[in-house]
Structure formats: structure tokens, C-alpha cells
């Protein structure tokens, strides 16, 4: 098939499935729990076939109560297991917010270090699949606000394969935000662990004129926008944040020291969000490197619509990124929420 240094083509779901399989094969403490992960094979088919391979005590279907099963996962982790808790989507995680924030994130602190919660929570996130207002949220910014948690967002299929390992190895809770649109996407996956640190960003495309800073589902959008900009003579550098808490300032600032312009592309809403956090860090650490105000391309400040053309119009698109870039190259501040 393929040897050590080569890569294989996989879809996002295949990559995550393989990651979970290998984790469970190599460590007895690892198990998967969540709604419909077993018999159904997972709502998005990520865990298809795993019940047959590992049996019902390691692939556990849970009741329809996020608060209850996330709590159970926290308990299992405290008890020495390494659970992978799958919350069907980030939208439902709101029902377990108290568990996540007040228990998982806080128990090590409140116990004076006596108790840790080595938990991995996987959540499907993002919009654009006509799941409408209540099921299309991007809450990475919200979760990134909470000390005690680590938040990561794979944007490439390779990261879908290789982020889970270090997340499970971490003695503290790690939340993996998986953009639903990437489950069906295909990409190159390395056969062996490239060993890329969980807390580092990655420059996916080098450029000299401006930095596009993004993560997760909008990474392919930014890469496409960069290609379009290149036809106009603007070379954009694309940074995949990968880790949203902590944020890799060093990679961001190094990029801006070379390009002097930045656009943050975030599928969340602009106001009081992650994009503002990144813009603030850039202002704090690279103000004197900037040739233009930092611009942000985010989702319009509305509940996401159901009709497909409207939801796409509300979300960051290649067109909006290119238009924003054109104005940033002229030194303009891009203040409008929707260009």
C-alpha cells in the first residue's frame, strides 16, 4: 500500500476514524462515547464500523442528554480513563456548558492539582449545510475564552488524522472543533505522525503582501482566495491557526513582520469574538509593523438563514475575502460587517 514517508488520500471522516481506531488499539484506556456513535456509526459516519471492531464497552451509545454524558465522561477521565466524548454538534454542547466550563475546565484548579480531567471532546461545528439558525453555530470564540481548556481546530485532512493523538496524551481537557464541511473533503495524509505540536499554527501558503489568518472550515476558502489574489499580483500568506486556545502569537507576528497587513477570517460572528482577539494581539505586538488596519471577514451578525444562497451570502466567502484584500492593500479600514 504505502510506506513510511508517503501519504495517502483520505476524507476527513476517514482520517478521524483512523485516528480513533489507532488510539484505541494502542491504549486500553481510550474509549468513545456519544449519541449514535455505536449502532448508527455516528451522525456524520465518522465512527462507522467501530462498534463491530471494538465492542459496546469501548464504543458507547449514550442517552440524549449532553449534560449527563459529558458529566459521565468527566468522571471517567477523573477515574483514570481517556475518554473521547463526541458531542454531536457544538450547538448541543450548550446543554453541557456547565459541565465543560465548571467541571472539566476547573477541577484541576479547584482540587489544588490533585485531580485532572484528561478528556477529549470532539464537536462538529460550522454552517453552510442548511441546518439553519440553531444548528449552524461557530462557537470557537466562546470556548476559547475559558481558562483550563485547550481548543484545537483541524483545517487540513492531515490534521484530522494526527491531532487526536496529542490531544489524548494531554492531561487536561482538549476540545476538537471539526468543521462539518471537511468530513467529506479529501486530502493528503501522512502515513506516520509528523509530530507537529498541538499548540502551533502553520503557514499553509507563503506570501509577501498580506497575511490571511484563519482556521478550520474557512482554511480552504482562504487558500482559494489567495490563488485568486495571486492572479492580481497580490501574494497572500495563509496561516492556519490550528490551536485557538492557546493562540500561536509567534507565527502570526512573524508573518505580519514580513507582510505588514492582516485579514482575520473567522466563521464566527465578528462582534466580541475570536477575530477581535487576534486583531488585538496583532495591535499589541506588531503595531509598528502595520501598513493598514487589521481587517476581519466574519459571518454577518444574524442567525444563519436556512436558504442556501442566503447562508452562503452571510458567511465568509472567497469573493468577500478578495474584495476585503483589495481594500486593505489600499490602506482602507474595512468596517462593514458584510462587504
Amino acid at each position: 500500500m504505502s510506506t513510511d514517508n508517503e501519504t495517502v488520500q483520505m476524507t476527513g471522516r476517514e482520517a478521524m476514524r483512523e485516528a480513533m481506531r489507532q488510539a484505541m488499539l494502542s491504549d486500553d484506556r481510550v474509549f468513545l462515547m456519544g449519541e449514535d456513535v455505536g449502532a448508527y456509526g455516528g451522525c456524520f459516519a465518522v465512527s462507522a464500523g467501530m462498534l463491530d471492531e471494538f465492542g459496546p464497552s469501548r464504543v458507547r451509545d449514550t442517552p440524549l442528554s449532553e449534560s449527563a454524558f459529558v458529566g459521565a465522561g468527566i468522571g471517567a477521565a477523573m477515574g483514570g480513563m481517556r475518554p473521547i466524548v463526541e458531542i454531536m454538534t457544538v450547538n448541543f454542547s450548550l446543554l453541557a456548558l456547565d459541565q465543560i466550563m465548571n467541571n472539566a475546565a476547573t477541577l484541576r484548579h479547584m482540587s489544588g492539582g490533585q485531580v485532572g480531567v484528561p478528556l477529549v471532546i470532539r464537536m462538529t461545528t460550522g454552517g453552510g449545510r442548511q441546518l439553519a439558525a440553531q444548528h449552524s453555530h461557530s462557537l470557537d470564540g466562546w470556548y476559547g475564552h475559558i481558562p483550563g481548556l485547550k481548543i484545537v481546530a483541524p483545517g487540513t485532512i492531515d490534521d484530522f488524522r494526527w491531532m487526536l493523538g496529542p490531544a489524548l496524551a494531554d492531561p487536561d481537557p482538549v476540545i476538537i472543533f471539526e468543521n462539518g464541511g471537511l468530513y467529506g473533503a479529501t486530502g493528503e495524509v501522512s502515513q506516520t505522525d509528523p509530530g507537529f505540536p498541538l499548540n502551533r499554527a502553520s503557514v499553509r501558503r507563503a506570501g509577501r503582501d498580506l497575511s490571511l489568518i484563519t482556521f478550520g472550515g474557512t482554511l480552504p476558502t482562504c487558500l482559494e482566495a489567495a490563488d485568486q489574489l495571486a492572479t492580481h499580483g497580490v501574494e497572500a500568506e495563509v496561516i492556519d491557526l490550528r490551536s485557538l486556545r492557546p493562540i500561536d502569537d509567534e507565527t502570526i507576528i512573524d508573518s505580519i513582520s514580513r507582510t505588514h497587513r492582516a485579514i482575520v477570517v473567522d466563521e464566527g460572528w465578528k462582534s466580541v469574538g475570536l477575530s477581535g482577539e487576534i486583531a488585538a494581539r496583532i495591535m499589541e505586538q506588531a503595531f509598528y509593523e502595520l501598513d493598514a488596519p487589521v481587517a476581519r471577514v466574519c459571518t454577518a451578525e444574524i442567525p444563519l438563514p436556512y436558504p442556501h444562497h442566503l447562508e452562503l451570502a452571510a458567511m465568509p466567502s472567497v469573493e468577500r475575502i478578495v474584495d476585503t484584500a483589495a481594500r486593505v492593500m489600499q490602506g482602507e479600514a474595512v468596517a462593514a460587517a458584510v462587504a
Partner: peptide, 9 residues
């Protein structure tokens, strides 16, 4: 008029 922070520096 727009004079960027980097330009001023």
C-alpha cells in the same frame, strides 16, 4: 491622509 504606523516608525 493615511500614514501607516510602520511608515511612521
Amino acid at each position: 491622509p493615511k500614514v501607516s504606523p510602520r511608515a511612521r516608525r
